[in-house]
Computed example of a mutant assay.
Amino acid sequence: MSQQLASKRVRDYMARNLVTFTPDTEVLSAIHQIVKHRISGAPVVDRDGKLVGMLSEKDCLKMALVAGHEGVPAGLVDDFMSRDPSTVDADDSLLDIASRFVDAPFKRFPVKENDQLVGQISRSDVLRAIDELY
């Protein structure tokens, strides 16, 4: 099985049509998009489309705690996003990505090719590949 999974590439299973946010997006608007699109998080990009962070469900829950306890307005994505996210390359093998997911505290990796954001791969994408193989 591992040999077959090693032959599969991220580019063949990654999501390409991504919901993305900018740092200046209102975090409540981002939460609405996460719920609407039934996703667990999304890349945060600057005005040039460069990846600058990730916003996850967990990050959004932190916003709820801060706003609830401190009585402050929700804020911007920039206030809650994870910075400098771990990324993978579109040509990485799914076996390598499965290994990284075992140790990762998150459910998705942004996918880059030639230093450009081209997609996102999730744990469920890797499981889909395993399911197709067997």
Rank of each mutant, 00 (worst) to 15 (best):
M14W: 08
Y13T: 09
V72D: 02
V77W: 02
M63V: 12
I130L: 14
L51I: 03
A6E: 13
A64D: 01
P23F: 10
M63D: 03
D91P: 00
V35S: 12
E26M: 14
I130C: 09
A104D: 15
R128Q: 15
Y13N: 08
S122A: 09
S2H: 11
V88E: 06
L55C: 05
Q116A: 15
E26P: 13
S122G: 10
K58A: 13
V72K: 11
Y134E: 07
L5H: 14
D131F: 09
I31Q: 14
L61A: 09
E26F: 13
G68C: 06
S124N: 10
E70F: 08
R16L: 02
D125E: 06
N17P: 00
K8M: 11
L94A: 04
E70W: 04
S7D: 09
D12P: 06
V88H: 05
L55V: 09
A98T: 11
E57Q: 11
F109I: 04
D59G: 05
L5G: 13
L76N: 07
K50G: 05
E113C: 00
L55S: 05
A129L: 10
K112R: 11
A98Q: 12
D59H: 07
R100Y: 08
S99F: 11
I121G: 05
Q33F: 08
D46G: 04
V19S: 08
D84L: 06
A15E: 12
E113V: 00
